[in-house]
Design a binder for these strands. Structure first.
Length: 153
DNA sequence: GCCAACGTTGGC
DNA sequence: GCCAACGTTGGC
């Protein structure tokens, strides 16, 4: 059982969208490191912090879980898709994904509040220059985040 | 809109 | 394989 933080732009897929859709493919990852986490390390049932990025209020917006093992991202084969990759083939797909199931929406846990918690000092997403859309979360960080979410700020 | 940080590309 | 140029991310 591992824990992850996964970024989504709410203008594309927000936590509300994810809750409506149930388990859905986490399409569009085009970064090898993030892909490799999904391919090599994610297991069904892993905990996911659903993070809103590139928006007015960046931060953790919900809790989700990994709902499938890895399989090819269909959007890479769709020439009309923004995520189309002409260099990828069905025989040898370059991009894979997992299904993610949103479990609940939380209050918005912003970056400033996260940075104020010493238990989160080493959290990858808080490091300077960290842009990776999928990052590992330690069990300690997971617990600390849940604890912060329980506080009514 | 700015800009730092990082990833990718491609010429050599 | 190096590395400069370019593109992208994402908070501010």
């Amino acid at each position: 059982m591992k824990y992850w933080l996964m970024k989504s732009e709410p203008s594309e897929v927000s936590i509300d969208d994810a809750l409506r859709h149930g388990a859905a493919p986490w399409f569009g990852v085009r970064n090898y490191q993030a892909r490799n986490f999904m391919r090599d390390q994610m297991q069904i049932g892993d905990g996911v912090l659903f993070y809103h990025s590139s928006c007015d209020e960046p931060g953790i917006a919900g809790i989700a879980e990994v709902a499938s093992t890895a399989y090819p991202d269909a959007t890479q084969f769709d020439s009309k898709s923004y995520y189309f990759d002409p260099k990828s083939t069905v025989e040898n797909p370059r991009w894979i994904l997992v299904d993610v199931k949103a479990i609940r929406k939380t209050r918005l846990l912003g970056l400033a509040e996260m940075r104020s918690d010493p238990d989160l000092a080493s959290m990858v997403v808080l490091q300077k220059g960290s842009r990776l859309s999928i990052t590992p979360v330690t069990a300690t960080e997971w617990k600390a985040v849940l604890k912060l979410l329980d506080k009514s700020k």
